[in-house]
C-alpha cells in the first residue's frame, strides 16, 4: 500500500509538470477515457469537451502548484485531497490567481498507471 501511495503522489507531481510545460496532450493522457472534470463549479465536462478545455486553458500559459493534503489509496481506486493554486491571466491579459481544495478520484488502469477519473478542483469548501 505504501508503494501505491508513493506512486499516486508522484502522479500529482508529474501532472503539474506536464501542466506547467503547457503540454495539453500530456495533461489529457492523465485522464481515463470516461473522466469527468469540473473545472467550473457545477459544470462537469467529459470526452472531447474536456480535452478541448485543457487546450484552451493551457493557451494562457498558467503555472500550477499542488500539494496533496490527504491520500486514501485502495488497490485500484484512490482519493486525493489537494491544495492547489494557479497563476494565469484572464481574457483581458490581467494576472489572475485561482486556488482551491481539489477532490481527485484516481483509478489504476490495467497497464499499471494511475489516471484521474474525477477531477473536482473546487470539491471542498476550504
Amino acid at each position: 500500500m505504501t508503494q501505491l501511495t508513493n506512486d499516486v503522489e508522484k502522479h500529482t507531481a508529474l501532472y503539474v509538470e506536464a501542466f506547467n510545460r503547457g503540454d495539453a496532450d500530456a495533461v489529457n493522457a492523465f485522464y481515463t477515457d470516461e473522466a469527468v472534470a469540473v473545472w467550473e463549479p457545477g459544470k462537469p465536462l467529459t470526452g472531447q469537451a474536456r480535452i478541448d478545455s485543457v487546450k484552451e486553458f493551457l493557451s494562457f500559459g498558467p503555472k500550477m502548484t499542488a500539494v496533496p493534503r490527504q491520500s486514501f489509496v485502495t488497490k485500484d481506486t484512490a482519493l486525493l485531497i489537494v491544495d492547489w493554486s494557479i497563476e494565469t491571466v484572464d481574457e483581458d491579459g490581467n494576472p489572475e490567481t485561482l486556488k482551491g481544495v481539489g477532490v481527485d478520484v484516481l483509478r489504476l488502469g490495467a497497464d499499471g498507471n494511475w489516471r484521474y477519473a474525477i477531477d473536482d478542483p473546487y470539491g471542498q469548501a476550504e
Binding site: 470516461e34 473522466a35 469527468v36 467529459t46 478520484v105 483509478r107 477519473a117 474525477i118 473536482d120 470539491g123
Partner: peptide, 11 residues
C-alpha cells in the same frame, strides 16, 4: 454526484 465509467464520487 459525478460518475465516470465504473467509479462515482458523491458528496
Amino acid at each position: 454526484h459525478y460518475t465516470a465509467g465504473d467509479v462515482a464520487l458523491i458528496g
